[in-house]
Protein backbone atom coordinates (compact mmCIF):
# COMPACT_ATOMS: atom_id res chain seq x y z
CA UNK A 1 0.00 0.00 0.00
CA UNK A 2 1.27 3.40 -0.95
CA UNK A 3 0.78 5.92 1.73
CA UNK A 4 1.52 9.61 1.58
CA UNK A 5 1.41 11.50 4.77
CA UNK A 6 1.88 15.17 5.18
CA UNK A 7 1.63 17.21 8.24
CA UNK A 8 2.26 16.17 11.73
CA UNK A 9 0.43 12.98 12.60
CA UNK A 10 0.26 14.12 16.19
CA UNK A 11 -2.84 16.08 15.25
CA UNK A 12 -4.62 12.84 15.51
CA UNK A 13 -3.96 12.76 19.18
CA UNK A 14 -5.85 15.88 19.76
CA UNK A 15 -4.59 19.01 18.08
CA UNK A 16 -7.06 20.49 15.68
CA UNK A 17 -5.16 23.38 14.20
CA UNK A 18 -2.49 21.52 12.29
CA UNK A 19 -2.44 20.81 8.66
CA UNK A 20 -4.02 17.44 8.00
CA UNK A 21 -3.69 15.25 5.06
CA UNK A 22 -3.36 11.60 4.90
CA UNK A 23 -3.88 9.84 1.66
CA UNK A 24 -3.59 6.17 1.24
CA UNK A 25 -4.10 4.22 -1.90
CA UNK A 26 -4.08 0.49 -2.14
CA UNK A 27 -4.94 -2.23 -4.57
CA UNK A 28 -8.46 -3.43 -4.38
CA UNK A 29 -9.31 -1.78 -1.16
CA UNK A 30 -9.16 1.88 -0.87
CA UNK A 31 -8.46 3.95 2.06
CA UNK A 32 -9.46 7.38 1.19
CA UNK A 33 -8.94 9.80 3.74
CA UNK A 34 -9.70 12.90 5.17
CA UNK A 35 -8.71 15.97 6.28
CA UNK A 36 -10.01 19.00 7.53
CA UNK A 37 -8.75 22.57 7.41
CA UNK A 38 -7.33 21.85 3.99
CA UNK A 39 -10.78 21.12 2.68
CA UNK A 40 -12.64 23.43 4.88
CA UNK A 41 -14.67 20.91 6.81
CA UNK A 42 -14.50 18.70 9.86
CA UNK A 43 -13.97 15.57 7.84
CA UNK A 44 -13.10 12.45 9.73
CA UNK A 45 -10.24 10.11 9.05
CA UNK A 46 -11.97 7.35 7.16
CA UNK A 47 -10.90 3.95 6.01
CA UNK A 48 -12.48 0.94 4.53
CA UNK A 49 -12.47 -1.92 7.00
CA UNK A 50 -12.19 -4.46 4.19
CA UNK A 51 -15.59 -5.89 4.93
CA UNK A 52 -19.13 -5.03 4.02
CA UNK A 53 -20.18 -4.34 7.57
CA UNK A 54 -18.44 -3.27 10.72
CA UNK A 55 -20.34 -4.26 13.84
CA UNK A 56 -18.09 -2.85 16.54
CA UNK A 57 -15.09 -0.61 17.12
CA UNK A 58 -13.06 -0.18 20.28
CA UNK A 59 -10.14 2.09 21.18
CA UNK A 60 -7.13 0.63 22.91
CA UNK A 61 -6.65 2.11 26.39
CA UNK A 62 -3.70 4.22 25.16
CA UNK A 63 -5.72 5.53 22.24
CA UNK A 64 -3.24 4.48 19.59
CA UNK A 65 -5.12 1.52 18.16
CA UNK A 66 -8.61 0.71 17.15
CA UNK A 67 -10.08 -2.77 16.97
CA UNK A 68 -12.95 -3.67 14.69
CA UNK A 69 -15.29 -6.63 14.42
CA UNK A 70 -16.51 -7.23 10.91
CA UNK A 71 -18.77 -9.52 8.97
CA UNK A 72 -15.85 -11.09 7.11
CA UNK A 73 -15.30 -13.35 10.11
CA UNK A 74 -12.35 -11.43 11.42
CA UNK A 75 -11.34 -8.86 13.94
CA UNK A 76 -8.72 -6.33 12.96
CA UNK A 77 -6.52 -3.91 14.82
CA UNK A 78 -5.79 -0.63 13.10
CA UNK A 79 -3.44 2.25 13.73
CA UNK A 80 -5.90 4.81 14.98
CA UNK A 81 -3.81 7.65 13.62
CA UNK A 82 -3.47 6.42 10.06
CA UNK A 83 -6.04 3.72 9.56
CA UNK A 84 -3.30 1.32 8.66
CA UNK A 85 -4.02 -2.29 9.38
CA UNK A 86 -1.76 -3.68 12.08
CA UNK A 87 -3.17 -7.11 12.78
CA UNK A 88 -5.87 -9.43 11.53
CA UNK A 89 -7.33 -11.91 13.96
CA UNK A 90 -8.93 -14.70 12.07
CA UNK A 91 -10.97 -17.07 14.12
CA UNK A 92 -12.77 -20.27 13.39
CA UNK A 93 -15.97 -19.04 14.85
CA UNK A 94 -18.02 -17.42 12.15
CA UNK A 95 -18.99 -13.79 12.49
CA UNK A 96 -17.31 -11.42 14.90
CA UNK A 97 -19.83 -9.06 16.44
CA UNK A 98 -17.92 -7.45 19.27
CA UNK A 99 -14.43 -6.51 20.38
CA UNK A 100 -13.09 -5.09 23.65
CA UNK A 101 -9.57 -4.32 24.82
CA UNK A 102 -8.48 -5.36 28.29
CA UNK A 103 -7.82 -2.33 30.50
CA UNK A 104 -4.03 -2.90 30.25
CA UNK A 105 -4.32 -2.99 26.47
CA UNK A 106 -2.47 -6.29 26.14
CA UNK A 107 -5.43 -8.47 25.29
CA UNK A 108 -8.40 -8.18 23.03
CA UNK A 109 -11.60 -10.08 23.57
CA UNK A 110 -13.83 -10.86 20.60
CA UNK A 111 -17.33 -12.25 20.53
CA UNK A 112 -19.13 -13.94 17.68
CA UNK A 113 -20.14 -17.32 16.40
CA UNK A 114 -23.37 -18.69 15.08
CA UNK A 115 -26.30 -20.82 16.12
CA UNK A 116 -25.61 -24.28 17.42
CA UNK A 117 -23.07 -25.48 14.86
CA UNK A 118 -20.20 -23.68 16.46
CA UNK A 119 -22.24 -21.81 19.01
CA UNK A 120 -21.27 -18.48 20.41
CA UNK A 121 -17.56 -18.10 20.92
CA UNK A 122 -15.57 -15.64 22.97
CA UNK A 123 -11.89 -15.46 22.13
CA UNK A 124 -9.10 -13.70 23.94
CA UNK A 125 -6.17 -12.61 21.80
CA UNK A 126 -2.67 -11.43 22.53
CA UNK A 127 -2.58 -8.05 20.86
CA UNK A 128 1.14 -8.17 20.08
CA UNK A 129 1.42 -11.64 18.60
CA UNK A 130 -2.14 -12.00 17.36
CA UNK A 131 -2.32 -15.41 19.02
CA UNK A 132 -5.61 -16.67 20.38
CA UNK A 133 -4.88 -17.39 24.02
CA UNK A 134 -8.34 -18.43 25.20
CA UNK A 135 -11.43 -19.80 23.53
CA UNK A 136 -14.52 -19.67 25.69
CA UNK A 137 -17.37 -21.88 24.61
CA UNK A 138 -20.72 -22.40 26.22
CA UNK A 139 -23.16 -20.06 24.52
CA UNK A 140 -25.28 -21.93 22.01
CA UNK A 141 -25.90 -18.87 19.90
CA UNK A 142 -23.83 -15.91 18.71
CA UNK A 143 -22.12 -13.65 21.19
CA UNK A 144 -23.22 -10.09 20.55
CA UNK A 145 -21.15 -8.15 23.07
CA UNK A 146 -18.07 -8.65 25.25
CA UNK A 147 -16.61 -6.58 28.08
CA UNK A 148 -13.65 -6.86 30.45
CA UNK A 149 -14.15 -5.96 34.10
CA UNK A 150 -12.13 -2.91 35.18
CA UNK A 151 -9.75 -5.13 37.19
CA UNK A 152 -9.33 -7.34 34.10
CA UNK A 153 -10.17 -10.46 36.06
CA UNK A 154 -13.55 -11.09 34.51
CA UNK A 155 -14.95 -11.15 31.06
CA UNK A 156 -18.66 -10.87 30.34
CA UNK A 157 -20.40 -11.99 27.19
CA UNK A 158 -23.93 -11.31 26.01
CA UNK A 159 -25.52 -13.73 23.61
CA UNK A 160 -28.38 -14.44 21.31
CA UNK A 161 -28.93 -17.54 23.47
CA UNK A 162 -30.66 -15.03 25.76
CA UNK A 163 -28.11 -15.29 28.54
CA UNK A 164 -25.06 -13.42 29.80
CA UNK A 165 -22.03 -15.38 30.91
CA UNK A 166 -19.31 -14.19 33.22
CA UNK A 167 -15.93 -15.85 32.74
CA UNK A 168 -12.62 -15.84 34.54
CA UNK A 169 -10.56 -13.83 32.09
CA UNK A 170 -7.33 -15.62 33.02
CA UNK A 171 -8.43 -19.24 32.99
CA UNK A 172 -11.51 -19.09 30.79
CA UNK A 173 -13.63 -20.88 33.37
CA UNK A 174 -17.27 -19.93 33.49
CA UNK A 175 -18.27 -18.17 36.70
CA UNK A 176 -21.97 -17.53 36.11
CA UNK A 177 -24.67 -17.82 33.54
CA UNK A 178 -27.08 -14.98 34.08
CA UNK A 179 -30.58 -16.00 33.07
CA UNK A 180 -33.58 -13.72 33.13
CA UNK A 181 -33.74 -12.07 29.76
CA UNK A 182 -36.19 -13.64 27.38
CA UNK A 183 -34.86 -12.49 24.07
CA UNK A 184 -31.49 -11.82 22.46
CA UNK A 185 -29.10 -10.05 24.81
CA UNK A 186 -27.55 -7.29 22.76
CA UNK A 187 -25.07 -5.47 24.95
CA UNK A 188 -23.18 -5.84 28.19
CA UNK A 189 -21.19 -3.39 30.32
CA UNK A 190 -19.37 -3.56 33.67
CA UNK A 191 -19.88 -0.79 36.18
CA UNK A 192 -16.70 1.24 36.79
CA UNK A 193 -16.31 -0.30 40.26
CA UNK A 194 -16.60 -3.75 38.73
CA UNK A 195 -19.33 -4.84 41.10
CA UNK A 196 -22.25 -4.70 38.71
CA UNK A 197 -22.97 -5.70 35.20
CA UNK A 198 -25.65 -4.18 32.98
CA UNK A 199 -27.19 -6.04 30.07
CA UNK A 200 -29.56 -4.85 27.36
CA UNK A 201 -31.96 -7.10 25.51
CA UNK A 202 -34.46 -7.35 22.73
CA UNK A 203 -36.91 -8.22 25.53
CA UNK A 204 -37.14 -4.42 25.93
CA UNK A 205 -35.37 -4.32 29.27
CA UNK A 206 -32.02 -3.50 30.77
CA UNK A 207 -30.98 -5.65 33.71
CA UNK A 208 -28.38 -4.95 36.34
CA UNK A 209 -26.67 -7.97 37.92
CA UNK A 210 -24.51 -8.43 40.96
CA UNK A 211 -21.19 -9.67 39.67
CA UNK A 212 -20.25 -11.34 42.96
CA UNK A 213 -23.39 -13.42 43.40
CA UNK A 214 -24.73 -13.59 39.86
CA UNK A 215 -28.09 -12.37 41.14
CA UNK A 216 -30.32 -9.97 39.27
CA UNK A 217 -30.46 -6.62 41.06
CA UNK A 218 -32.66 -4.50 38.91
CA UNK A 219 -34.74 -4.53 35.76
CA UNK A 220 -35.21 -1.29 33.86
CA UNK A 221 -38.48 -1.46 31.99
CA UNK A 222 -40.42 1.06 30.02
CA UNK A 223 -38.80 0.81 26.62
CA UNK A 224 -41.31 0.01 23.95
CA UNK A 225 -38.86 -1.62 21.57
CA UNK A 226 -35.61 -3.58 21.53
CA UNK A 227 -32.78 -2.23 23.64
CA UNK A 228 -29.58 -2.48 21.64
CA UNK A 229 -26.90 -0.85 23.76
CA UNK A 230 -26.08 -0.03 27.36
CA UNK A 231 -23.20 1.93 28.93
CA UNK A 232 -22.25 3.07 32.42
CA UNK A 233 -21.36 6.68 33.03
CA UNK A 234 -17.77 6.70 34.31
CA UNK A 235 -18.94 7.77 37.78
CA UNK A 236 -21.00 4.60 37.91
CA UNK A 237 -24.12 6.43 39.01
CA UNK A 238 -25.99 6.45 35.74
CA UNK A 239 -26.72 4.12 32.90
CA UNK A 240 -27.37 5.06 29.31
CA UNK A 241 -29.39 2.75 27.15
CA UNK A 242 -30.78 3.01 23.66
CA UNK A 243 -32.48 1.00 20.99
CA UNK A 244 -35.10 0.69 18.35
CA UNK A 245 -37.33 3.40 19.80
CA UNK A 246 -34.75 5.94 18.51
CA UNK A 247 -34.19 7.40 21.98
CA UNK A 248 -31.29 7.45 24.37
CA UNK A 249 -32.31 7.11 28.00
CA UNK A 250 -30.28 8.07 31.03
CA UNK A 251 -31.27 6.19 34.18
CA UNK A 252 -30.17 6.06 37.77
CA UNK A 253 -27.99 2.96 38.00
CA UNK A 254 -29.07 2.17 41.55
CA UNK A 255 -32.81 2.71 41.36
CA UNK A 256 -33.41 2.32 37.65
CA UNK A 257 -35.37 5.55 37.61
CA UNK A 258 -35.31 7.26 34.24
CA UNK A 259 -33.67 10.69 34.50
CA UNK A 260 -33.41 12.03 30.96
CA UNK A 261 -34.43 11.14 27.45
CA UNK A 262 -32.34 12.27 24.51
CA UNK A 263 -34.45 12.77 21.41
CA UNK A 264 -33.12 13.54 17.98
CA UNK A 265 -32.28 10.40 16.07
CA UNK A 266 -34.61 9.31 13.32
CA UNK A 267 -33.52 5.69 13.27
CA UNK A 268 -32.69 2.93 15.77
CA UNK A 269 -29.93 3.88 18.17
CA UNK A 270 -27.44 1.04 17.92
CA UNK A 271 -24.67 2.10 20.26
CA UNK A 272 -24.03 4.52 23.12
CA UNK A 273 -20.75 5.54 24.75
CA UNK A 274 -19.69 8.08 27.35
CA UNK A 275 -16.57 10.19 27.18
CA UNK A 276 -14.13 9.25 29.92
CA UNK A 277 -14.93 12.38 31.92
CA UNK A 278 -18.61 11.53 31.72
CA UNK A 279 -19.65 14.92 30.38
CA UNK A 280 -20.56 13.77 26.90
CA UNK A 281 -22.51 10.91 25.47
CA UNK A 282 -22.22 9.69 21.90
CA UNK A 283 -24.88 7.71 20.09
CA UNK A 284 -24.75 5.88 16.77
CA UNK A 285 -27.86 5.35 14.74
CA UNK A 286 -29.52 3.69 11.82
CA UNK A 287 -30.20 7.23 10.59
CA UNK A 288 -26.53 7.18 9.45
CA UNK A 289 -25.45 9.79 11.97
CA UNK A 290 -23.58 9.96 15.21
CA UNK A 291 -24.77 12.46 17.76
CA UNK A 292 -22.95 13.89 20.71
CA UNK A 293 -24.99 15.02 23.66
CA UNK A 294 -24.30 16.94 26.82
CA UNK A 295 -24.73 14.06 29.25
CA UNK A 296 -26.00 16.29 32.00
CA UNK A 297 -28.56 18.40 30.20
CA UNK A 298 -29.43 16.04 27.38
CA UNK A 299 -28.75 18.80 24.88
CA UNK A 300 -27.55 17.69 21.47
CA UNK A 301 -24.19 19.35 20.80
CA UNK A 302 -23.05 17.83 17.53
CA UNK A 303 -24.31 15.67 14.70
CA UNK A 304 -21.68 13.84 12.70
CA UNK A 305 -22.75 12.97 9.19
CA UNK A 306 -20.72 11.04 6.68
CA UNK A 307 -21.59 7.37 6.96
CA UNK A 308 -23.56 6.08 4.01
CA UNK A 309 -25.24 3.32 6.00
CA UNK A 310 -26.42 2.57 9.51
CA UNK A 311 -23.82 3.37 12.12
CA UNK A 312 -23.42 0.32 14.30
CA UNK A 313 -20.85 1.33 16.88
CA UNK A 314 -19.38 4.39 18.49
CA UNK A 315 -16.62 4.93 21.03
CA UNK A 316 -14.64 7.86 22.45
CA UNK A 317 -10.86 7.82 22.56
CA UNK A 318 -9.61 7.63 26.14
CA UNK A 319 -8.70 11.32 26.11
CA UNK A 320 -12.11 12.24 24.77
CA UNK A 321 -10.77 14.20 21.81
CA UNK A 322 -11.58 11.68 19.14
CA UNK A 323 -14.53 9.52 18.44
CA UNK A 324 -14.54 6.39 16.33
CA UNK A 325 -17.62 5.19 14.52
CA UNK A 326 -18.25 2.32 12.16
CA UNK A 327 -21.14 0.72 10.45
CA UNK A 328 -22.88 -0.97 7.62
CA UNK A 329 -21.09 1.06 4.96
CA UNK A 330 -17.96 -0.93 5.83
CA UNK A 331 -15.97 2.07 6.97
CA UNK A 332 -14.39 3.16 10.18
CA UNK A 333 -14.30 6.89 10.84
CA UNK A 334 -12.30 8.78 13.41
CA UNK A 335 -13.69 12.21 14.14
CA UNK A 336 -12.06 15.08 15.92
CA UNK A 337 -14.43 15.91 18.73
CA UNK A 338 -12.14 17.99 20.86
CA UNK A 339 -14.35 20.03 23.16
CA UNK A 340 -14.18 23.70 22.25
CA UNK A 341 -14.83 26.36 24.79
Amino acid sequence: MLQITTGNPSWLCGGSSMKRLVVAVGWGVTCVVLASPLFGGEEPLTWNARAKKVFCVAFSPDGTSLASATNDKSAKIWDAATGQEMLTLKGRVGQFYSVAFSPDGKRLASGGGDFQKKGGVVSVWDVVSGRETLTLKGHFNSVTSVAFSPDEKLLASASKDQTVKVWDAATGLERFTLQGHFSYVTSVAFSPDGKSLASASEDRTVKVWDVTSGQERLTLKGQSKFVLSVAYRPDGKQLASAGKDELVRLSDAASGQELLTFKGHTGSVTSVAFSSDGTRLASASGDKTVKIWDATSGRETLTLKGHSGSVMSVTFSPDGNRLASAGQDGTVKVWDVTPRP
Binding site: Q116, Q162, T163, Q179
Partner: peptide, 13 residues
Protein backbone atom coordinates in the same frame (compact mmCIF):
# COMPACT_ATOMS: atom_id res chain seq x y z
CA UNK B 1 -38.07 -25.35 31.05
CA UNK B 2 -36.81 -21.82 30.54
CA UNK B 3 -33.85 -22.25 28.20
CA UNK B 4 -32.53 -25.08 26.07
CA UNK B 5 -30.06 -27.16 28.01
CA UNK B 6 -29.03 -29.40 25.13
CA UNK B 7 -29.23 -29.38 21.34
CA UNK B 8 -31.05 -26.09 20.78
CA UNK B 9 -33.14 -25.92 17.64
CA UNK B 10 -33.92 -22.68 15.84
CA UNK B 11 -36.99 -22.05 13.69
CA UNK B 12 -34.56 -22.02 10.77
CA UNK B 13 -33.41 -25.55 11.59
Amino acid sequence: AAYPARDPVSPED
